[in-house]
């Protein structure tokens, strides 16, 4: 089960994901993020209510990060629960993708 919401805060497009990102739900986020962002756009994935991510979910995040980079946009994530943060660390994603502790902290840096 997954619920995805998108809204705009200043120049930042926030995509909030609630639920689990596994092999059955990740294609929905993939579709949601499939459109190339405009150059200079900032995408923030708010994972405050993401309770679980597997390698299938990480693939989608990596793909979106590459798409953003190639479009001249920026992608960051925020609000990871400790277990999801651990998966980001162990996969080496923490060195590729900026991780902010809260949405406020992310917006203060990115906006």
């Amino acid at each position: 089960m997954i619920h995805i919401e998108r809204f705009v805060e200043g120049n930042v497009v926030v995509t909030a994901v609630r639920g689990r990102l596994d092999s059955s739900s990740s294609p929905k986020l993939d579709e949601f993020l499939a459109e190339a962002p405009a150059g200079g756009e900032v995408i923030l994935l708010d994972f405050a209510d993401l309770s679980y991510i597997s390698s299938a979910g990480l693939r989608v995040v990596l793909k979106a990060t590459k798409l953003a980079r190639s479009s001249g946009a920026t992608l960051a994530v925020c609000c990871l629960i400790p277990q999801v943060h651990e998966v980001f660390d162990v996969s080496g994603f923490s060195t590729l993708i900026p991780i902010h502790p809260s949405r406020e902290a992310a917006l203060a840096t990115l906006a």
Binding site: S55, A56, L58, G92
Partner: peptide, 15 residues
């Protein structure tokens, strides 16, 4: 690896 070099094969087992 850098973002451009990164491929995802075997990531699940690595985790």
């Amino acid at each position: 690896g850098s973002l451009e070099e990164r491929r995802i094969g075997g990531l699940g087992v690595h985790l």
